[in-house]
């Protein structure tokens, strides 16, 4: 259990696992004593300090209510922390003004368990959205969306609506949309929660490939088999606390 063990709330700063220290990149995500409460008696995160470096693939594990989704939401500024500071890509998300949130999100790809695809738009249009908000020329939008769909193996179905696709295929579209803009960070909240074992591996291979290309990836999952299979750094949460920061090699 080298480098593994309970993690207390060190007031001095974020926790770095040995694996993190070995990673060569700069820390892209840093949390300092972050707490999030939705009201009295409803604390989602308690005094969380952690650091994730460029190019890391990190699993967030824990049972329902552990705080995985809340942590994800804090990172892309869908929620604000009650206490503490969060640095993402050098920006203090805790203090980020409303008008600056879109610029942050353009550098973060997000994937959800329920895919969050626009059902009235084609597969290609869904993927293209991430480029259209940047005002890219239509030719560039089409060519990048096509290339991304080819990477996830769905270029031949680009004109179809999401409802015509299976769950695994829809998640591949969501992943394509999240990655088409070449984001620095990919957040995936239970991306394989609705998929069978075979499709889970298919999606996770795509996620791991993104990390291999230099994207920092956080995957929230309660699937222990998945964590064991990929054997990457894992932050184990329970009751809103960080219980363990397990380096990849130890799993």
């Amino acid at each position: 259990m080298n480098g593994r063990g309970p993690v207390g709330p060190p007031r001095s700063g974020p926790v770095r696992s040995p694996a993190t220290r070995r990673a060569g990149g700069d820390p892209l995500i840093r949390l300092f004593h972050v707490s999030k409460s939705y009201g009295p008696g409803s604390v989602a995160l308690r005094d969380l300090s952690v650091e994730v470096r460029k190019g890391e693939l990190v699993f967030l594990s824990g049972p329902s209510g552990a705080g995985k989704t809340t942590l994800m939401k804090l990172l892309f500024a869908a929620e604000r922390p009650t206490e503490g500071q969060i640095l993402v890509l050098g920006r203090n998300v805790a203090r980020l003004g409303e008008r600056r949130i879109p610029a942050l999100r353009r550098r973060i790809g997000v994937v959800f368990q329920d895919f969050k695809l626009i059902q009235t738009r084609s597969i290609e249009e869904n993927v293209a959205l991430a480029l259209q908000v940047l005002g890219r020329p239509p030719r560039e939008v089409r060519s990048k969306a096509f290339a991304m769909l080819r990477r996830v193996g769905l270029q031949h179905r680009r004109h179809e609506l999401p409802a015509a696709l299976s769950g695994g295929e829809q998640q591949r579209v969501a992943l394509a949309r999240a990655l088409v803009n070449e984001p620095a960070i990919l957040l995936a909240d239970e991306p394989t929660g609705n998929l069978d074992a075979e499709l889970t591996i298919e999606i996770m291979d795509l996620v791991a490939a993104a990390a291999a290309r230099g994207t920092t990836v956080l995957v929230a999952t309660h699937d222990q088999a998945l964590i064991r299979r990929y054997a990457r750094r894992t932050l184990r949460l329970a009751g809103g606390r960080l219980l363990e920061d397990i380096p990849g090699g130890s799993i």
Binding site: R105, I118, T120, V133
Partner: peptide, 14 residues
Amino acid sequence: RDELEILALVGASR
């Protein structure tokens, strides 16, 4: 509303 939420997620400004 769902569509707007998704657009906001991918970085659409107000």
